[in-house]
Design a protein around this nucleic acid. Structure first.
Lengths: 187, 187
DNA sequence: GTCTATAAATAGATAGAC
DNA sequence: GTCTATCTATTTATAGAC
């Protein structure tokens, strides 16, 4: 096939957008293709003109999700602000664009290798954004791993907890400690 | 119903054990009741003599998993050793008993409230174990939240990554930082 | 309590009209 | 390219024999 028309591209991206939203909120298996298509204002059958399987959509969704998440801006990122927005209750409750690293971590772990490769790409991108912003001391790399675990872990755990008081304490704790990590590393 | 026989109890626990193992490895939706029963050396139909639904099994599995995980010993826990065992590649690869907090975090987030309440109970238990071992300064509580996010997040992310080199770096980074947190808090 | 067989519902994927 | 209709497979849960 030669080139997809511009209209088809737009439809395709609408489907992916819906997929990111729904997969993040409910997990891969709890979302039917019909649900995604309905959200994109289409019906079941049209799906296969864009993707060859649900799995393929999952891969595209993870990869593209990063573009709409708080990590979007590749250029100048205020890491301290990123930290605050990421570990925010609004992110946990998906009132801002969900980061698939946090929302789909254990879900991805149960999928085939291709999906995990997509996740790993996104994760490396995340680490690179942190690296770009901060000094490159030897312990810097280590601190960025820690920062990523803190952020992703904090949000992932928060989503699974039923007690909002604990959620807020956890998020605050991670935020404060993350900030201390940043100060340390810039001195 | 009066009392379940001892034999029935044992069978029930075998089913739960299988469930913990399989749910952790593959996620709730990717494991059929038949799979669990087969692993427990039984067949499909016998399941409903023990549980009223798959959901109920999930709750029991999460709650009971903690007993077999690295967090088992309620009494004297060497937190530094716990940290090392938890953030170990063998735990990630499920060669030791999996901690449901790390293995099922985003999975639980997509289930109904009862499952999340079970998860929250286990999480509180985790935090309490940390609290019991360490001094009770004001910042102590904060540090335990951070420690939990580091451990659970580190393992959860590791499971989703396809690049083992990065996994080992991430685990090491979390381990080292976790240890520094412990030292800080005991001085 | 456990078995085999089956009911009932769901969902991924395909076929063919427009 | 999108629609409706359908095929097919899977899976939760139940029924009834042992």
């Amino acid at each position: 096939m030669p080139w997809p028309t511009e209209q088809k591209q737009r439809t395709r991206e609408r489907i992916i957008e819906s997929a990111v939203k729904l997969f993040s909120a409910q997990g891969f298996d709890n979302v039917a293709i019909t649900d995604v298509m309905k959200d994109a204002q289409l019906t079941n059958g049209a799906f296969y003109a864009h993707f060859k399987s649900k799995q393929e959509l999952y891969r595209k969704a993870i990869t593209s999700a990063i573009k709409n998440s708080a990590l979007a801006q590749d250029q100048e990122v205020d890491v301290s602000k990123l930290l605050a927005d990421y570990l925010d209750i609004n992110h946990v409750q998906q009132k801002t664009a969900p980061c698939p690293l946090a929302f789909l971590a254990t879900d991805v772990a149960t999928r085939e290798k291709e999906v995990q490769i997509a996740y790993t790409d996104v994760y490396n991108n995340f680490i690179n954004i942190l690296n770009k912003q901060l000094s490159h001391s030897l312990s810097r790399k280590r601190q960025n791993y820690v920062l990523s675990a803190l952020m992703i872990g904090g949000v992932a755990i928060s989503r699974a907890l039923s007690d909002e008081k604990i959620v807020l304490e956890l998020l605050d704790a991670c935020k404060e400690y993350g900030d201390e990590l940043l100060v340390e590393s810039n001195s």
